[in-house]
Amino acid sequence: MTMAANLVEPAELKKFSGPQRAAALMLALGQEHGAPIWEQLNNDEIKELSAGIAQLGRLPAVAVEHLLVQFSSEVSSMSSLHGSYETTERLLSGILGEDKVKEIMEDIRGPSGRTMWDKLSNVNEAVLAAYLRNEYPQTVSVILSKLRAEHAARVLSELPSDFATDVIQRMLRMEPVQKEIVAEIEQTLKSEFMTNLARSQKRDPHEMMAEVFNALDRSSEERMLSALEECNAESAERIRALMFTFEDLGNLLTASIATIVKNADKREMALALKGAPEEIRELFLGAMTERAAKMLREDMSAMGPVRARECDEAQTALVRLAKSLADRGEIVLVDPKSDESMIY
């Protein structure tokens, strides 16, 4: 539990929605401290926030202080940030053109290194040898001469014996190679080998399966994971660690919960919360206005007894909504792979 959760909310704030609280916070931060945040917003977000500030009216100092302390304590409770290829690509897509993003992502998905030769020296020798054995021996000799000696030796040992001997002889007789030829080889390596290597390494299949399991209803998910554990316990454990579950919603910041509430189907949300643990139910109700929370409680009560399967399905739909909002950059999700880490 964060320190903010222990703060008593002033009565003046209870009627304020999430967007109104954001407007008040930005007004309190002022021009100097708020500028870096404004720069990250798109035009629609700037208009919405500006309209919120313009219509804010008077807000007592005690309410402003509460917002600032809550914001500060929630940010300080984040132990780390979690970056990934997918979150990097989403971030760049909002800044750069599609072609540029594609070029950058293909480059960074590949092996590390500032130059092409640094990158090649970090490619598995068997993978590199499999590609080089289809090239001319003269081209291979130029490439290996640019690699670190120990890595070149490992690659040579992976090549067919006769082919490797031919390459070694050419390396022994090698004259200085024209810059144009080296540049052409580099370009070919980038466009053919590195691009395909990056695509082949694009995604951990466990991440894909975690998304598949997230989309299953609770009973099917548990049945299939239990069956997988019996034949491949390691993979089942990795998938469980990567999954984002309904219970993980309980770790979200108040602003993220408020956005989910705003976008959720109200009947589906009532059904999901009816079967939810008390702390998650109160978290969602606390992100609503008093009137909306009262109506939701009445809806849950009016439902009477409901099947557990219906609640599970509604909770799965709420998780899918949360992940969809996170993919669009509208909310921040806690990453289940790391305690308290955050995805942007």
Rank of each mutant, 00 (worst) to 15 (best):
E247A: 14
E247N: 13
L249S: 11
G250R: 09
L252M: 15
L252S: 05
A255E: 14
S256Y: 05
S256T: 01
I257D: 12
A258N: 01
T259I: 11
I260T: 03
I260G: 02
V261L: 05
V261R: 05
N263L: 01
N263W: 02
N263M: 04
A264S: 12
R267S: 11
E268V: 01
A272C: 07
L273P: 04
K274P: 00
G275V: 01
G275T: 00
E278C: 05
E279N: 11
E279T: 00
L283D: 05
L283W: 05
L283P: 01
F284K: 03
L285F: 13
R291F: 09
A292P: 01
M295S: 07
L296M: 14
E298N: 09
E298D: 12
D299P: 00
M300K: 07
M300A: 08
S301L: 09
S301D: 12
A302Y: 10
A302M: 15
P305A: 13
V306S: 14
V306R: 15
V306T: 12
V306E: 15
R307Q: 14
R307Y: 10
R309P: 00
D312V: 03
D312L: 01
E313V: 00
A314M: 10
Q315N: 08
T316A: 14
T316S: 13
V319Y: 15
V319C: 12
R320V: 07
L321A: 07
A322W: 07
A322C: 06
